[in-house]
Design a binder for these strands. Structure first.
Length: 567
RNA sequence: UGGGGCGUCGACAAGCGGCAAGUCAGGAGAUUUUGGAUCUCCCAUUCGGAGGUUCGAAUCCUCCCGCCCCAGCCA
């Protein structure tokens, strides 16, 4: 693992593990696993689980396996396992070659099923899906036993063998555990453990036409791998009695399942189903759209693995349902990027400035520091000349209160350059829009300090027009307008809360020339604006594209907003 | 009317019978060639509610209230 991580905070799972070690369970061994189903892309919620499982293994001198829970061939694909591997690795974790698949255990699983049948604890049921549902009962009424429940062991064995041989149609029969149709826990009402699916599997191809269900496969896979602590999310709490039942009946190594609350993040959604709808409905450009909370989307947006790990550490681990403020996540990436990203000047919405007393045709190379937080990052040269661009937002003809930036007659500093004063405002005759500013500069203030000690209130970023590099910048905002688009009490479809302004593309931005060699994926702080990352997909030799990872904290924007609120 | 789980600051979250950590957000000030960063201070006399046990309760007991999950041959 690279980079620094904060000291892990206490949580109930660590408490349990510490106690288990104290009690000498598993001879003090700690072994976890991250068990994704390869049916979609990983997102920030998975990152929480990844950090938890790998983090615990690391801290207790244990191990963590990467295991693909691939028991449903109709939904799983090899492309997903590749992306999952890439993402977990990118996050900074290593599974030491222990890359396993539930499908690796299909033979063993089959054997365990036979064992259950022989023990009289499982039977082949001829009921169809609808009938099984009818027999299951409801939340408040017990179920009814299947008429096939008491088939003789030999008959079950024969039938199960024929199921595997492909003699029956999909859905015509299942293998069920014989537990208790009257249980208050619906998972214990003779759950299906094998179903017939004549579908090719991404790893075992056509070898099987029957596939084990999650409840059966998961606990046994954990057992086979010697997992000591099987950490999963709260919705599996109801499944724990079943998890324990299989292991007890089979009398094999018994890991301990522990459940924690999954992550919910404000202004986004974190369910594979909803994320899929966003992709398929064209609301975003793909799984790695920078607005997606997927690991690939966050990576493209410019988030670092360190910031994500840090975030996962800060949010903690508990059992209660919660909605984490996305501001915390943004704080984590700013904190990281503030320390390590080189600063650079880029004008997003250019306003032309002519320095009327600066010599025509002259260019100076001025020194600019790359990162005030880290002097070791050195300095660079930035060209200055008569015609410049500054940010439109940095000039106001009619300045509101507390506006420190450039206004007619006012003097401000151009970062690392000179003090300039606005002497004339040129407007479009038709629209009245300000198109150009005429300013004078003070030769004495080179570098940005005035020898006479006079102060200016603002420092602006700028770029020399003749030397500027045109580029495209994509400004992202939260994908949703509501903090909790997932709110179960909200009757509207979550897609109705999509933010129509989640992406703003600025096609004619002006960057300082040092950015000419910026490589895809590299991150910068555009001074006074935010953190930006060179887009890895759309950037080409001809086109430089930046994604805004996060804005800088913007006190002025807050003042303005507050003023608007008072009016 | 079943089963399981959870309720501590605006958001997360410690706390495990001895008198409410920390982080983010928010507010005030200092500092500043990024209205950034940094620094200082403020922000729960109270832990869903009501009783009870105890010298002492967020922590133990009882009842009540609220929220989440479960009726896939998904995971």
């Amino acid at each position: 693992m690279t980079g620094s991580s904060p000291v892990p905070s206490a949580n109930f799972i660590r408490d349990i593990i510490t106690e288990d070690i104290k009690a000498d369970k598993n001879s003090g061994r700690v072994h976890t696993r991250f068990p994704p189903e390869p049916n979609g892309y990983l997102h920030i919620g998975h990152a929480k689980s990844i950090c938890l499982n790998f983090g615990i293994a690391a801290d207790y001198n244990g191990r963590c396996n990467l295991r693909f829970d691939d028991t449903n061939p109709t939904k799983e694909e090899a492309k997903y396992v590749e992306s999952i591997i890439e993402d977990v690795r990118w996050l900074g974790f290593d599974w030491g070659g222990r890359e396993y698949y539930a499908s690796d255990y299909f033979d063993l699983l089959y054997g365990y099923a036979v064992q259950l049948i022989k023990k009289g604890k499982a039977y082949v049921c001829d009921l169809g899906a609808v009938e099984i549902r009818d027999h299951r009962g409801t939340l408040t009424e017990p179920g009814r036993e299947s008429p096939y429940r008491n088939r003789p062991v030999e008959e079950n064995l024969g039938l199960f063998d024929r199921m595997r041989a492909g003699e029956f149609e999909d859905g015509s029969r299942t293998l069920r555990a014989k537990i208790d149709m009257a249980s208050g826990n619906i998972n214990m009402r003779d759950p299906v453990i094998y179903r017939i699916q004549k579908a090719a599997h991404h790893r075992t191809a056509d070898k099987w036409c029957i596939y084990p269900m999650y409840d059966f496969a998961h606990c046994i896979s954990d057992s086979i791998e010697g997992i000591t602590h099987s950490i999963c999310t709260m919705e599996f709490e109801d499944h724990r009695p079943l998890y324990d039942w299989f292991l007890d009946e089979l009398e094999i190594f018994h890991p301990r399942q522990i459940e924690f609350a999954r992550l919910n993040l404000s202004y986004t959604v974190l369910s594979k189903r909803k994320l899929l709808q966003l992709v398929e409905g064209g609301y975003v450009a793909g799984w790695d759209d920078p607005r997606m909370p997927t690991i690939s989307g966050l990576r493209r947006l410019g988030y670092t693995p360190e910031s994500i790990r840090n975030f996962c550490e800060r949010i903690g681990v508990a059992k209660r349902t919660s909605l984490v403020d996305v501001a915390l996540f943004e704080y984590c990436i700013r904190e990281d990027l503030n320390k390590r990203s080189p600063r650079v000047m880029v004008v997003l919405r250019p306003l032309k400035v002519v320095i009327i007393n600066y010599p025509e045709g002259r260019t100076e190379e001025l020194d600019a520091v790359n990162n005030p937080e880290d002097r070791d990052m050195g300095t660079r040269k930035v060209p200055f000349s008569k015609v410049l661009y500054i940010e439109k937002d940095d000039f106001r003809e009619d300045p509101p209160k507390k506006f420190y930036r450039l206004t007619p007659g006012r003097e401000v500093r151009l970062r690392y350059a000179y003090y300039i004063k606005c002497v004339d405002v040129i407007k479009d005759e038709e629209t009245g829009e300000v198109t150009e500013l005429h300013c004078t500069y003070d030769h004495e203030t080179k570098g940005g300090d005035s020898p006479d000690g006079r102060k200016v209130k603002a420092t602006l970023h700028w770029v020399s027009a003749a030397d500027a590099i045109g580029c495209e910048v994509r400004l992202y905002e939260h994908l949703f307008l509501k903090p909790n688009p997932d709110d179960p009490k909200d009757e509207a479809d979550f897609k109705e809360h999509i933010n129509p302004n989640s992406l703003e593309t600025l096609a004619s931005c002006m960057a300082e020339p040092s950015l000419a060699i910026a490589s895809p994926g590299s991150r910068f702080q555009f001074e006074r604006q935010g953190y930006f990352c060179v887009d890895t997909v759309d950037t080409s030799q001809k086109r430089l594209v930046f994604n805004r990872t996060a804005t800088l904290r913007d006190t002025w924007a807050r003042i303005e907003k507050a003023a608007r609120g008072t009016k």
